[in-house]
Design a protein around this nucleic acid. Structure first.
Length: 500
RNA sequence: GGGGCGUUAGCUCAGAGGUAGAGCAUUCGGCUUUUAACCGACUGGUCGUAGGUUCGAUCCCUACACGCCCCA
């Protein structure tokens, strides 16, 4: 660190650097022999019923450590608050109750420093559980000042770029990520209880498939070949069903080369599960059970408040087919012409939806659905019977081959899940791949490639199977009342910061 | 890609074509039960970057960067 650099630093940091230099002179400024035997919140709960008198009688000596978030000096005595992973605990420091000189040193410590303290518990006159320190140590000096204590850190950009500061200062933010962890843990327990096997499949793939999206491309130097970051694990998971694992799931990242928005991050987390000898109706029931249980378990209520709307997860969710919901939100449409390509193309033109030559009636239906229905599906709702044209991996409906046995699940106008009875007919699947390849050749760079090995796998025979993908980030947004996907990602994608 | 809004002290925010403000934090002093502790004094800024208009720009204009929101 040159003198010039030091001079450029804010005076606040320079001041703390001076203090650190003093600490270095006095000994090891970064000790690693600190041990504690209690957590703040544990103490609050354990001694909830102990008044001051009882605490003093029992003389309970504890050792805690954490970041000093509050420092109130009143002459020869002070109160500080230490924050550890569980919460905060107050510590009282008295000059005459500490070894000589310690209190004078403490007066130079800053809010944000990591501090260890040991002493007996008592309660202040307002009843706050407090440790009267016999020993107190500065464990790690913080060189940078924390955001202001009352308003915290409000700047969105800093919250995302310097998540560590956000986590220090905003309890709400810490809670979002605790809930996120609880959601994933709940799902694992839910599936493990049903004898599902958790698996991991490649992030780097040689063939683009499993979803309709643009991939990121990377390069393997030693093999001199292009690889795609996966847009979905679907085809690999179904290979495992062919292999006889019968019930598998993966919770992991997908990568899609698309724009960034409040709903989209280039990498996001999906649960995908596949269950042999089940159909899409079974999965609809599974989603209902999962959602009910998760809300109860994590929020302690089946009523989920999201951005001013309340959703009741204990009620049966609504169900409509794609064509039913299109008619519901577009009652003027001619019911008899919902599969008439020219009629639908005319409707799209009225709605300002660009129509390509290659779009069939099914694709046009979905365009109309996206434009006029999706955002209006506020309450938890299943939409079923998606057109075969836009469902290249789904099983055709036995009675109506124009549609597949597929559903999507919506809450608050957003797609949360997409599931279907899997297409296990290798010849039908080969035809669907060919249609995708044709789309690709006509310029659709989101279309799938023909996956020869997947067809080969299906030719060995995949039992009747149903599968589903659930967007974990969007689910966590719902359960944490978060407006943006960035709020539920520890390190959301940002343009690189410029350091000068 | 298009549109709107934003960027001022470490943090949270005011502000006005005439040379910059508050609270908290920092620094110094006081205070042995505080709770956004309190009392007193001080300190702190190339007003996002680069151009332009102007006697004068942080303010008006243009471009760019970054962020937020909406649309595609």
């Amino acid at each position: 660190m040159s003198n010039d650099q030091t001079a450029d630093e804010s005076k606040l940091i320079a001041e703390r650097r001076r203090k650190l230099a003093e600490l270095r002179q006095q000994g090891n400024a970064y000790p690693n022999d600190v041990r504690r035997n209690a957590l703040a919140e544990e103490l609050q709960l354990t001694f909830e019923d102990h008044d001051d008198e009882r605490l003093k009688q029992e003389n309970i000596v504890v050792a805690v450590a954490g970041r000093m978030m509050v420092k109130r000096v009143m002459g020869k005595a002070s109160f500080i608050k230490l924050q550890d992973r569980s919460g905060q605990i107050q510590v009282r420091l008295e000059r005459d109750h500490l070894p000589d000189g310690v209190y004078q040193g403490f007066k130079k410590w800053d809010v944000g420093d990591i501090v260890a303290a040991q002493g007996a518990l008592f309660r202040t006159k307002t009843g706050e559980l407090t440790i009267l320190a016999d020993e107190v140590r500065l464990v790690t000096k913080s060189l940078r000042p924390l955001p202001e204590k009352f308003h915290g850190l409000a700047d969105q950009e800093t919250r995302y770029r310097q998540r560590y500061v956000d986590l220090i200062v905003n309890e709400q933010s810490r809670n979002v990520f605790r809930t996120r962890s609880a959601v994933v843990a709940y799902i694992r327990a839910f599936l493990d209880a049903q004898d599902f096997l958790e698996v991991e499949t490649p992030m780097m793939q040689t063939t683009q498939g499993g979803a309709v999206a643009r991939p990121f491309t990377t390069h393997h130097n030693a093999l001199d070949m292009s690889l795609y970051l996966r847009i979905a694990p679907e085809l690999n998971l179904k290979r495992l069903i062919v292999g006889g694992l019968e019930r598998v799931y993966e919770i992991n990242r997908n990568f899609r080369n698309e724009g960034v928005s409040t709903q989209h991050n280039p990498e996001f987390t999906m649960l995908e599960l596949y269950r042999a000898y089940a159909d899409y109706e079974d999965l609809i029931e599974m989603v209902e059970a999962l959602m009910h249980g998760m809300a109860d378990s994590i929020l302690g209520t089946s009523k989920v408040n999201y951005q001013g709307e309340e959703f009741d997860f204990s009620q049966p969710f609504e169900r409509y087919t794609v064509e039913e919901i299109i008619r519901r939100f577009n009652p003027e449409l001619d019911e008899g012409k919902l599969r008439d390509r020219e009629y639908l193309a005319g409707i799209c033109a009225e709605l300002g939806i660009p129509v390509k030559e290659s779009y069939g009636a099914g694709k046009l239906q979905i365009e109309i659905f996206d434009k006029t229905c999706e955002n209006n599906l506020r309450k938890p709702t299943f939409i079923t019977q998606y057109p075969t044209e836009v469902s290249p991996l789904s099983r055709r409906n036995d009675d109506d081959p124009f549609v597949t046995d597929r559903f999507e699940f919506f809450i608050a106008g957003r797609e949360i899940a997409n599931g279907f009875s899997e297409l296990n007919d290798p010849e039908d699947q080969a035809e669907r791949f060919n249609a995708q390849v044709a789309d690709r050749e006509s310029g659709d760079d989101e279309a799938m490639a023909f996956d020869h090995d997947y067809i080969r796998a299906l030719e060995y025979g995949m039992p009747p199977t149903a599968g589903i993908g659930i967007g974990i980030d969007r689910l966590v947004m719902l359960l944490t009342d978060s407006a943006s996907i960035r709020d539920v990602l520890l390190f959301p994608h940002m343009r690189p910061e410029v350091f000068d």
